[in-house]
């Protein structure tokens, strides 16, 4: 506990403090002068605003795609598959989670490459790989975080008793009505729990963006560039507080749904 409190919270606090410091343009030294310049710079340059909103948009899109893909799988695993198939499915979903994150992003670099698998599959239909860019980034991120969405929804659906399905059927509802009116509302907190992962992981990602994103910039890549080559830690710190604020707002918003107990 102490470790978490000291190492983590202190580091977060220090990060925020640093974002209020200035950097000497000439020497590159950090000057411990209190200023809002970094935040003002964030707001004044339209390019940073665009990048921030683009990042949030992609994170939201990735979350939506994952929720759409994960729900049928989770429903199949929880309520249709036999116990043996379910066990195998859990392994099948978990296995990619253990495969290295970097390797998976790299695999998609191979998929999207010129003359790669997607080009080859698409060529009979006259389709081409979208190449490296925002579309590739969205697909890769959705791929990377899909298991984080499937597992909470699966756990949530498993807790829905079978008798509710029967009751709904006895009251005259068809399968689709049952899913829409009974299953979806009950699975909602689990979906939100999964979305915390997919949303947060997408907000901060810069590795996959660098690998398949082409020239597209997101918050992560800007922060990375500012810590590394540009060496402007205060500005990087200021920009990094954007995803923190977004996440805190998101966590506060979903607390009511009881999603945090579903983690």
């Amino acid at each position: 506990m102490l470790w978490l409190g000291v190492a983590y919270l202190a580091a977060l606090g220090a990060l925020f403090v640093t974002s209020l410091w200035a950097q000497n343009d000439f020497t590159g030294e950090i000057e411990r002068v209190w200023t809002f310049d970094n935040f003002r710079q964030l707001w004044d340059f339209p390019v940073y605003r665009t990048i921030a909103f683009r990042t949030i948009g992609i994170a939201a899109l990735v979350t939506a795609i994952d929720a759409l893909l994960a729900f049928p799988i989770a429903l199949y695993m929880a309520k249709v598959a036999s116990p043996r198939v379910r066990r195998l499915m859990v392994i099948a979903v978990l296995m990619p989670l253990w495969a290295s994150y970097l390797v998976k992003a790299y695999a998609w670099r191979g998929m999207f490459s010129e003359g790669g698998l997607i080009d080859w599959l698409g060529s009979p239909f006259g389709l081409h790989s979208p190449g490296y860019g925002l579309a590739a980034t969205t697909i890769t991120l959705a791929y990377l975080w899909l298991p984080y969405m499937i597992l909470p929804i699966f756990a949530g659906l498993e807790r829905v008793p079978d008798s509710l399905f029967e009751a709904s059927g006895d009251l005259g509802a068809g399968s689709f009505t049952t899913i829409r009116r009974v299953v979806l509302p009950m699975a909602f907190p689990a979906v939100v729990a999964g979305s915390i992962f997919t949303f947060s992981l997408s907000l901060g990602d810069y590795i996959a963006v660098t690998i398949v994103g082409g020239a597209g910039q997101l918050i992560g890549t800007v922060v990375y560039a500012n810590v590394g080559s540009a060496n402007n830690l205060p500005f990087a710190a200021a920009f990094a507080t954007v995803p923190v604020v977004v996440m805190l707002i998101y966590l506060a918003a979903v607390r009511r749904t009881g999603a945090l107990e579903n983690l």
């Binding site: 978490l4 409190g5 190492a7 983590y8 919270l9 202190a10 580091a11 977060l12 220090a14 990060l15 640093t18 915390i196 992962f197 947060s200 992981l201 907000l203 901060g204 990602d205 810069y206 918050i219 992560g220 922060v223 990375y224 810590v227 830690l233 990087a236 710190a237 990094a240 995803p243 923190v244 996440m247 966590l251 945090l260 983690l263």
Partner: peptide, 22 residues
């Protein structure tokens, strides 16, 4: 409990540069 969720709920890059800075 929120504090425990925080390191996994916040983006990795934030944890990374927070620790780097510290």
């Amino acid at each position: 409990s929120l504090l425990i969720i925080l390191p996994i709920a916040l983006p990795g890059i934030v944890t990374g540069i927070a620790l780097n800075n510290a």
